[in-house]
Nucleic acid binder design. Structure first.
Lengths: 238, 238
DNA sequence: GTCTATAAGCAGATAGAC
DNA sequence: GTCTATCTGCTTATAGAC
């Protein structure tokens, strides 16, 4: 009944939303309580797993440490997630959902200044709100992205290709400088994710205050300005 | 006699250059041969260690795997490097030396177009030539930079602070847009290192040809152009 | 300087009582 | 659904013959 835990992240995406309500048809209150215990423990374990995978990578993370952080015996972790890999896949799934939500902001407007600016802000906000998730993603890619080929090829690549066409259209319309679209997208990803992934370096070099709420917002606007300048974006004439 | 292997990376920097010639005063040829065997084995082990640390992070890497890649018994690895941590520190040391060499290009000219453009090219070239090293560095920072505090605080921070002053001077002279200097430096690091660290993602999204020599050179010039535009750099009037 | 054998401990995963 | 005890194998590091 927990087959979904052993499938790849991409296969998992389709099934997961229905999983947490599968017992609700039952008449007694026991299944509902069980289901909510399950949901709450799974969520908690996923959050702790995200932190440990971020700090130590997949191979370096131990299920014992994840369970300890969650305040549960290691055997409970294996009750909810049969293998370390299944747990890891669930973490990657959740991260892609957030990535996907931010990606939507790219289509908020036909004005490249609004679209690109909004996307950069969304990615910066994601770095601020969920830096551990960004680190897990980065670790996975650095290690060769072996567990993410499905997500990259079936989800990220199609998104990128259609955004490349949109950028090329903007260039044709004279709303963007003649940039290589992929280079622009990579620059946006690299720069915004840097504030999550390289947090420790920024803290060491620029001091703790560099990551305070007010300072982070100012940095976000700096990044937006620089990316817009780099891309040569201008708003269409009204 | 191998005390240097157990010190921190920063302490190591000062001693290492003299270490490999310490037996040369000896009259017999034996010490020289021994020294060169040592040098060659150490170099080989360091290269293999860099690859394994890049793929799996510090905690995930095993000395057994490093030794196997080097074609040596594990005990030999421990003969040259007493602990896994000592080996890791030596790898980080070597990486910082390369980082430092690239950093020098920033001072090649008083013209911000030449200085910034040259630095971006040097960092891109480093990403192309030694992607594994960049990945080890990234892994270390993502994991909290616990083993790099010395290098960051004593070496990188002073360099950054003096470059920040240089950038502020350029802004005062009207040769750069009024950017936040640190944000510009972080954007340069993030964007250039992305081509090493996120190699697997680029390959999956843009295809293998994206990293061919000709294509990489074209991308480098794209990145240079975009960074220069982002910073609003212009050459001083002659 | 090389390498087999092994110590001491931690990893992922499971059995089975409660 | 929880948790102790345990299996099996891999981890870092060392001993000691050659």
């Amino acid at each position: 009944m927990r087959d979904d835990d052993t499938k790849t992240p991409a296969a998992n995406l389709a099934m997961r939303t229905t999983a947490s309500v599968r017992d609700d048809a039952d008449a007694t209150h026991k299944p509902r309580r069980k289901a909510s215990i399950r949901a709450s423990n799974e969520t908690h374990l996923l959050a702790c797993a995200e932190a440990v995978f971020a700090e130590r990578g997949f191979e370096g993370a131990s299920t014992a440490l994840i369970a300890e952080r969650a305040g549960l015996p290691k055997a409970n972790l294996h009750y909810y997630f049969p293998t370390k890999l299944a747990l890891y896949w669930r973490v990657l799934d959740d991260l892609f959902e957030e990535w996907n939500a931010a990606a939507d902001t790219f289509d908020a407007s036909d004005d490249p200044v609004v679209a690109i600016g909004g996307y950069v802000r969304a990615k910066m906000e994601l770095s601020r709100r969920r830096p551990l998730g960004s680190k897990v993603w980065a670790n996975e890619i650095i290690s060769g992205a072996t567990h993410m080929q499905d997500i990259l090829l079936k989800r990220v690549k199609p998104w990128m290709e259609s955004r490349v066409q949109l950028i090329e259209r903007w260039i044709d319309e004279g709303l963007l400088a003649p940039v290589e679209p992929k280079t622009l997208l990579f620059m946006i990803w690299a720069t915004t994710q840097h504030y999550a992934d390289f947090e420790a370096q920024i803290r060491a070099l620029a001091g703790k205050r560099a990551l305070s709420a007010a300072s982070f917002e100012a940095t976000t606007e700096e990044v937006v300005k620089m990316i817009l300048r780099a891309s040569g974006a201008r708003s269409p004439d009204a």
